[in-house]
Amino acid sequence: MPPTDNALILELKNIHAVYGKKIHALKGVNLKIHTGEIVALIGSNGAGKTTLLKTISGVLPAEQGDILFKGRAIQNIKPHEIACLGIAHVPEGRKIFPRLTVLENLEMGAFSRVDAGGIERDLRHAFELFPILKERRGQLGGTLSGGEQQMLAMARALMMKPELLMLDEPSMGLAPVITDKIFEIIAAINKEGKTVFLVEQNARRALSVASRAYVLETGQIVSEDNAQNLLNDPKVQEAYLGV
């Protein structure tokens, strides 16, 4: 699905990041995401995928380089300010609030919003996308199953009304049938106009839903192409698709 609008929403220029004061986790990453795309980032464990998302969302400030969100440099501002600009980061391991109810979790997604009517509308929409969350709205987040927690994490991120949704390993630890469901919803969210940046170890799944993808190895982008070409690339097949 080619992007209908070619406007850049996110651009990374020569991003370097250091993890735990010692590990040079990102070594000059360049990356572009256009409005309306689903872009996947694939790579093995420890390649720096999670670090890259953390650098974009401000949790781990970049040592060097520029991050432009809709043309605006965001590498030096705080995570909550970046979130308010329209980037929602669903972290690895869901990170829902375990001692808050499902509804309270969703309310926290809308924390910085003041449009009460819009929040109400988005809450109804979240319950349409994830009917199980409506059933469980009064339950504590920590009591949900892994798949339900992933749905809650995504619904909570959507409550932020983001323009760019970044998902870190949404399929991690989930049964295949639940993973199918999650990826269906990712495609549906994208159709509604959200740009999606998807980080996955499950490369086949990621490439099946994405329009373009980057391959990250030891902190560097080693390959970039449309998803179909990468699926057919012998090197990618050997390294990430288990062919």
Binding site: G58, H80, F97, P98, L100, E104, M108, R156
Partner: peptide, 24 residues
């Protein structure tokens, strides 16, 4: 209250609270 819920969210997970747009 919203602030009270944000306090509980921060007590659960400070980093993720920041990602939600909460000024921790």
């Amino acid at each position: 209250t919203k602030m009270g819920k944000a306090m509980r969210a921060c007590a659960d997970d400070l980093t993720t609270s920041g990602l939600m747009g909460i000024d921790v």
